[in-house]
Write a protein that binds this DNA or RNA. Sequence first.
DNA 1: TCCTTATTGAAAAACATTTTCAATAAGTAT
DNA 2: ATACTTATTGAAAATGTTTTTCAATAAGGA
Lengths: 138, 138
Amino acid sequence: MPADAWLEQLRDNGYRLTKARRAVVETVEKTTRALTPVEVFDMARKKYRALGLVTVYRTLEKLEELRLIQRVHQPQGCQAFIAAGVGHQHLLLCQNCGQAAFFDGDDLEMLTNAIARNTGYQIQDHWLQLFGLCANCR
Amino acid sequence: MPADAWLEQLRDNGYRLTKARRAVVETVEKTTRALTPVEVFDMARKKYRALGLVTVYRTLEKLEELRLIQRVHQPQGCQAFIAAGVGHQHLLLCQNCGQAAFFDGDDLEMLTNAIARNTGYQIQDHWLQLFGLCANCR
DNA sequence: TCCTTATTGAAAAACATTTTCAATAAGTAT
DNA sequence: ATACTTATTGAAAATGTTTTTCAATAAGGA
């Protein structure tokens, strides 16, 4: 999804389009690996010097709300974000370069059904994330 | 696994058995939901008043090292820990009461193989967590 | 161009975690 | 039991991250 579509989403939800938001959106949208707030700050500031770190936090919060980005959980920490996949998709992360790929997660139905049967739990949501080496780093 | 076995593991790895460690181990081992460091601190201090929060952090670090506990990732945060399952197991958490259950994750082989084929990634690790309602809360 | 008010960045506050350090106590040797 | 070595401790300080506060600014509609 192009950055313009993200800005449109923001506008449609009653948010104003500012230079700060443009810089953050463009940065996150075009990066294919997970970024921490500080990384976003450093990168986006090259587009808009006056940007403040606080605004990065606030913008990421809104983008997550609108499901345009998602939080990435990793052994090293869980503060990073990445452009969200479309529909219900899961992340596959390269442990060397961080490159992210998405894949569909519908194939879990069978597994979760079996687990529901075994545990007595009613399963409502699942988180799946894979780690490995991308074609380049392999 | 009983708390004594955890203490034995600590001793076998060259760590001393202290009142502080006993209190932390007993707390985490017998609780079946994920606890944050502060929660562990509050609970363990009932067993050993002089306990310090710093020691809780240090003990949790060692228990994680020895794979006796594992970090629990949740939408609200990723600072909580729980007694680890045996072997390669995944977590199923009750969204109401926090009650945790474990299940085997070997059934993912087929899925990960298919994804490796599709993406060109060499998959090395996976991370799966389910959320739902336990039999009681349902 | 004016007006309203959402948004901003800076500073301060809140919170979580780690480091430093002198005092203590665990475990071993005596 | 006692002495000894040194890992471990808790408190305080330092660090790092995220949130709140607030007056100034600028977005977008009138």
